[in-house]
Amino acid sequence: MPDLHWIIPVARWSSWPAAATAAPDIGFIEPIVRRRLSTLSRVALKVAHDCVTQDDIRVVFASRHGELRRTTDILRAISAGEPVSPTAFSLSVLNAMTGVFGIARGDRSAASAISAGAETLGYALLEAYAQYTAQPGSPVLLVYADEPADPAYGAIEDEVQGGAIAILLGGEAAMGQLVCTLAGHPDNTSGAGKTSHTTDAAAALPAESFATQSQALLHCLETGKPAVWQGAGATWHWRWHERAA
Rank of each mutant, 00 (worst) to 15 (best):
A174W: 01
G176F: 07
A232N: 12
I167E: 01
I29S: 04
P186G: 14
W6E: 00
A164G: 12
I8M: 05
T120W: 08
S115G: 13
S14V: 04
A116K: 04
A118L: 05
P148M: 10
Q161P: 02
W6C: 02
G66L: 06
P206I: 06
Q131L: 13
S190E: 15
G154Q: 09
R42W: 04
A207Q: 04
A155E: 14
E159V: 03
A77Y: 08
Y123G: 02
D73R: 14
K225I: 00
Q213I: 10
Y153K: 07
M97G: 10
R58C: 11
W16S: 03
T189F: 14
A211M: 08
V59E: 09
V140N: 06
L94A: 14
A20D: 11
A23I: 00
A245N: 12
A118C: 07
Q135P: 03
P186H: 12
Q54V: 08
P206H: 05
A134M: 11
H241T: 03
Q131D: 13
R36N: 08
A18Y: 06
L40F: 11
P24F: 10
G137H: 11
L178G: 01
L182I: 13
S109R: 07
H219M: 02
V33R: 15
P31S: 15
D150C: 06
L125D: 01
L205G: 01
A80S: 12
I167T: 02
R35L: 03
A234S: 13
M175Q: 13
L37G: 10
A22C: 07
A77Q: 15
D55E: 15
N188R: 14
G162A: 15
E67W: 00
V100Q: 00
R34N: 04
G99C: 11
E82D: 14
A80P: 00
V179L: 01
A116G: 07
H65V: 04
G154H: 07
L4T: 09
R64V: 05
D200I: 01
L91S: 05
G117Q: 04
R243P: 00
P24L: 09
A204F: 07
L168V: 09
E172C: 05
D146P: 10
R108G: 05
I29H: 02
A145T: 06
G81P: 03
L91W: 03
Q135S: 14
E82Y: 06
A96L: 09
A11F: 04
P148L: 10
D25R: 07
G224K: 05
G122P: 03
E157N: 11
P136V: 12
G193A: 05
H237C: 02
Y129Q: 08
Y144T: 01
S15Q: 10
T223Y: 06
A20I: 09
D50M: 10
A203D: 11
V100D: 01
P139I: 11
G81I: 09
T87S: 14
T53L: 09
S109P: 10
F28Y: 14
A118P: 07
L168M: 15
A20P: 10
W16E: 06
L178E: 00
V52G: 00
